[in-house]
């Protein structure tokens, strides 16, 4: 029986509580996560394929998807560049304020998204500290897609930094010393030895930042302006459809989002495995 083989103890153990703890875990996981998520897909099946297709391909929805995925990709790309710079500074150099710099990387994690949202809005509004500087140049950030982009950079930063940091910290100095002793210049060493080693972690961090950005809501909606077909992101569209009691629309859009995040999760796990393989860590 295949179901009996699955989730069965491979070797009997003297440690008590296997059945009980695994049972409770599966039950609680099902109640809180699996059944509710399954409910979403089940609800989607109440729509006909044509209805589903109409919802998903409407201009407003398509634009929201385009905006959410496009800006998330761009913001993650920015973090892919600046994240490693922050990591390199924190891991490799000693300078006053280094530990503080390291600690505040987690602020986008720790700061409630609504707080970040109103703070970024106040900063980039035409009357704000930064918005005020940009306004004379004719650059508008708040209430445009550019504002969304800024917010998504903010929330994605820790994902790249915290994924790459441990790998760079654990990187044995031997490799760089070997490269140097073989006559490689510093830049060549970094490009040919260090970068390939941290590449899987970098891509994992990129994917994590992207996944988080696609689903982000709180920090974006204040600064976005939320104009349909201009600066309306997918999560907001779901909320709007719910408030209009268009449950079917919300469900259909939600199902697509959920599938996208599953694909991303799959990708992230694959990258992680690659990363662990690359740095020679046993899983």
């Amino acid at each position: 029986m295949s179901t009996a083989a699955f989730l069965r103890r491979r070797t009997p153990s003297v440690i008590p509580g296997f059945g009980l703890t695994l049972g409770v875990t599966l039950l609680w996981l099902s109640l809180i996560v699996l059944i509710p998520l399954a409910g979403l897909f089940l609800k989607t099946t109440e729509l006909t394929l044509a209805q589903f297709w109409t919802v998903i391909t409407s201009r407003r929805v398509l634009h929201a998807f385009e905006l959410s995925f496009g800006l998330s990709l761009a913001a993650a790309a920015v973090n892919l560049v600046f994240g490693p710079v922050v990591v390199w500074a924190v891991v490799r150099y000693r300078f006053p304020g280094r530990r503080l710099l390291d600690a505040i990387v987690d602020i986008p994690f720790a700061l409630p998204t609504a707080v970040a949202g109103i703070a970024l809005t106040a900063l980039y509004a035409p009357s704000g500290w930064i918005g005020g500087l940009l306004a004379p140049l004719g650059v508008k950030v708040a209430f445009t897609p550019l504002g969304i982009f800024i917010a998504l950079i903010f929330i994605g930063l820790p994902f790249v930094v915290r994924t790459v940091q441990p790998v760079l910290e654990d990187l044995d100095s031997q490799y760089e010393e070997a490269a140097a002793s073989l006559g490689a210049g510093r830049w060549t060493t970094v490009r040919r030895v260090v970068l390939p080693t941290i590449l899987p972690a970098l891509l994992t961090g990129f994917a994590l930042a992207f996944a988080r950005a696609v689903g982000e809501y709180g920090s974006v909606i204040f600064i976005a302006g939320n104009l349909p077909n201009v600066s309306e992101i997918v999560p907001l569209l779901i909320v709007i459809r719910l408030q209009e009691f268009h449950y079917a629309d919300a469900t259909a859009i939600g199902a697509v989002m959920l599938v996208a995040s599953f694909i991303l999760l799959f990708l992230v796990n694959g990258l992680r495995r690659w990363s662990e393989l690359r740095i020679g860590k046993r899983t």
């Binding site: 059944i35 409910g39 979403l40 609800k43 689903g215 779901i238 469900t251 939600g254």
Partner: peptide, 14 residues
Amino acid sequence: SVSPVIAGLVFVLL
């Protein structure tokens, strides 16, 4: 990896 909005949505649907 699930959007917070979807986390809310699933409970509304239930």
